[in-house]
Nucleic acid binder design. Structure first.
Lengths: 233, 233
DNA sequence: CCAAAAGTGTTGAATTTACACCCATGA
DNA sequence: TCATGGGTGTAAATTCAACACTTTTGG
């Protein structure tokens, strides 16, 4: 899966760190390498960059091919280019990170060479992929505190408790329900619907909808260029 | 200057946005292209990536070759890879941004094909370089608010007024001297020396020193790997 | 003494945090 | 009715912003 375009001197590849939120916390799909180097070890999904394919589309394609999922959020993480990342050859990897909705992640394919792991308990990965995942985790947690990316884990509508549990799972600490409610209400990123969820043994919570006129994250002049950055085919 | 390694299908290059702080604000050195495409137009300093050269070292080398300066701060900005960035061929550019000390920027070489421009008043640049500079400017201003990168513009010791003027120039708005003092003192990023600057027609200000045990910016697990990221040859 | 910038103090507003308390539902 | 989580109120603590005021130098 981590094949790549071979050039005269430098190999250019695209890899993607995919996050989904399960009951036990953050999970990441990995693929088993079927050739040397690191044959048999787990690695990030990655693939060749085709000549007329945008980098971001390559990341979205890798995602689709390995998990059969589409991402609600996709962003470039970093370009890794250390000379000794791969034994024997120079590989430069443009790495993206993606978030997929929890309900869709249930349907994700899993097989002999594709498996989901807990993000906090990964095996030793091929290349420098452990460092890459650490960095992606750090970015996810940092960005969660000042942006609205938590919505990317949820469906069209959601309760405030669901949204709060996303934050708690990613940040790894409990949040005060009362204060959390006020913070997200003050941010104007959500719109209250008139629907409520019944069936629980308690007061039915109101459903909210994400305000699509508010960008998930502020990347400055960059998301002006391609507004379709959020949803990738 | 924006030559690059030619591959089978994709060209990989490194470019650098260099910021210095002059009396009139932020300034950026550009180089004039001496070949097609965009011959004669101004562009970011960039160069080929050599097979056994780290990406960051390539950025530092471009910096040294075009301005004869060394950077006190160098960080990866983004990897630009749109298919139509360059006419006729696919070029993927790993872009870095750098800060150089104001006193050293005075010594920077300038010639027929290298000139410094005001960051807020750039001519139309080659390729997508205007977008790149806009993004670098946004990152600089955003990062200035929560990190300590302002020190990279200053020398070994500095007064609080000098530090404040850096912030004011980058952010483009005046800051309250009293509150600014308390903020940076509370951040523990600076150390008071016993030296003062005399000669002004006012009370001599105390000199401060940057606390090197505090990282300029928090990039998570990334600066653990190469601690020498701050000073580049 | 005066001007100018360094440096300190103070006050009110805004924000965060902790937690008490009421509401609506299923069993 | 009780248990449970949804939802509101509120007061203390902390941080932020504005600005008055004192200090120290050169002229």
């Amino acid at each position: 899966m981590t094949t790549a375009v071979t050039t005269n001197e430098v190999t250019l590849a695209v890899s993607t760190v995919i996050f989904a939120l399960g009951p036990e916390g953050l999970r990441i799909p990995l693929v088993r390498r079927i050739r040397q180097p690191f044959e048999g070890q787990w690695a990030l999904p990655g693939g060749p960059i085709e000549t007329r394919e945008p980098l971001e589309a390559a990341a979205g394609r890798n995602l689709l091919e390995t998990t059969n999922l589409r991402s609600t959020y996709l962003e470039q993480l970093y370009c890794f280019g250390d000379v000794d990342r791969a034994p024997g050859e120079r590989v430069v990897s443009v790495v993206y990170w993606a978030l997929v909705r929890s309900d869709e992640a249930e349907l994700a394919v899993e097989g002999e060479n594709v498996r989901w792991f807990s993000a906090d308990d990964l095996p030793p990965l091929a290349f420098d992929h452990n460092v890459i995942v650490d960095y992606a985790l750090w970015r996810l947690r940092t960005k969660m505190e000042y942006s609205q990316i938590a919505h990317a884990f949820l469906g069209e509508t959601f309760t405030l408790a669901e949204l709060r549990r996303v934050h708690e799972a990613v940040l790894g600490r409990p949040l005060d329900p009362a204060n959390f409610r006020r913070q997200v209400e003050a941010s104007d990123a959500i719109i209250a619907t008139e629907q409520h969820i019944t069936g629980g043994r308690h007061r039915p919570p109101r459903l909210y909808r994400y305000d699509t006129s508010v960008a998930l994250t502020d990347n400055g002049p960059l998301n002006k260029k391609s507004e379709a950055r959020r949803v990738v085919s």
